[in-house]
Design a protein around this nucleic acid. Structure first.
Lengths: 255, 255
DNA sequence: TTTCATTGATTGATATCCAATCCTGTGTTT
DNA sequence: AAACACAGGATTGGATATCAATCAATGAAA
């Protein structure tokens, strides 16, 4: 197993992507160290990792906060995502074998079945996963990691916008993309990817107020099930928190 | 000013890219902490940053080493770089204004003058910088950072290969790329980028033995000029290193 | 009411200590 | 002599306590 700071960074990442830790939420070292029952140093290392991934930002002498990407950031992220997926599409058109196309079609089919059976949660996951599978078929780990990071950041964006529609569930887009690529119509496929993402960005309204839904402790509790072996700490916290538990703004105010 | 660990990570990165710290070189925490005169924890945080960037790898309970990318890694990195630069080329063809084209041409011209005046060092830097300028003109910070990371990794690769030719100095390629893009010949431009990179990878011979050219202390000394204020530590090290200074393999043996 | 100063809290960083793990050298056994 | 086992050293991963620097918020003074 890797280091504990990596494990904690993974949990924080999950919590952010699950929108349990919302953009602007303060990630205090002491608070997190008490939650995970580790020292502040491990937390710092975890925060460095999360910040390097673009999901948090560290301000000197102020602390770490869940990232609040701007509209400009959103456009840049989607532009980059478009670029990567278009490039992968071009590569796959040349290099992908029958087994690969079959896997893609099978994935879409599974999602179709999920939609048909009313399992919207699964359909959502499969819809988002399509892009990941798509890139994985390029058999390029470097590109996979780059793409995955971009996807994580788009997922974070979805905490800041009013999502009118589930863009990932556009089954038709995915199915048509496969069809176009197999027929060698690269230009049309790339335009579709571009339109796909442009449509999403156009729907963005980023002035939505983000307010604290959960405290970090509440947000992170579900991820600690396996490692929770110190109720003593929790009681200690309850008794030791004194008066500062009252009103706690967990949202980083815009400057 | 950012944190100390970030500054040290930057220095380590520079030293790796300058090939003063060669692939496989062990980056011991204690040794680095003595070199930079900081605590081991700061070094750990710096190493995490460098490793996240792909220039080092951390093995649990064994320590950090300068990354030794495989031939497979090299191909994937260049594939990704090709993909990104092709995508940027396509974007620039649509969106770049006259000022942008002028900047590109001016950059090539400056490199041409450097070559003409025999300043090969400057020509090298400008040649490598061309790709960076190219991507910067996309005005997409996300993509810029992604591209910069890929470039750093290719730079690391050059420590592992026998560089028969200076691929970045192919002035003609750069000039022709601009010309093609301005004329709207996207397909040809993209093929040129692909050929450019493919040519480089084909020239790679990665079974070159990497042997320790410098100890970390020697490698990092030039970067410490501004912050060097503790000769006391150095003398203490000299007297305190005892017998383990003898033969020290700085190269991580291949498994 | 505005400005300034003090105080409290948090971060950045150090030093020291301990446990776990890896590497190595030595000694023993076959 | 070769293979194995074991013990010790060295290094990493981590905890804890402590201190300085900085930010934020409160309260006092003009």
């Amino acid at each position: 197993m890797s280091s504990r700071s990596q494990a904690i960074a993974d949990i924080l990442t999950r919590a952010i992507l699950d929108r349990r830790l919302v953009p602007g939420c303060k990630l205090g070292e002491r608070e997190l160290s008490e939650i995970f029952n580790v020292s502040r140093i491990v937390i710092r290392q975890a925060l460095i990792r999360v910040a390097d991934d673009g999901l948090a930002q560290i301000e000197r002498n102020r602390g770490a906060f869940v990232a609040r990407p701007s509209m400009q950031d959103a456009m840049e992220i989607y532009d980059a995502l478009t670029l990567v997926e278009q490039g992968v599409a071009a590569q796959l058109m040349d290099r992908l074998g029958p087994a690969g196309w079959a896997e893609l079609r099978q994935h879409v089919e599974r999602q179709r079945q999920a939609v048909a059976s009313g399992n919207h949660a699964l359909a959502d996951v499969l819809g988002a996963e399509f892009h990941t599978v798509f890139v994985r078929l390029s058999r390029n780990k470097v590109m996979q990691e780059m793409h995955a990071q971009l996807v994580r950041r788009t997922t974070l964006l979805r905490a800041l916008i009013t999502a009118d529609f589930d863009y990932c569930n556009l089954l038709d887009d995915h199915a048509r993309l496969i069809e176009l690529l197999e027929k060698g119509r690269l230009k049309q496929a790339m335009d579709m990817i571009d339109a796909h993402h442009r449509q999403v960005v156009r729907g963005y309204i980023m002035d939505r107020q983000v307010f604290p839904e959960l405290t970090p402790r509440e947000a992170l509790e579900p991820y600690l099930l396996n490692a929770g072996q110190t109720p003593e700490i929790q009681t200690k916290n309850k008794t030791g928190e004194k008066g500062r538990t009252g009103v706690h703004t967990h949202v980083h105010a815009a400057k």
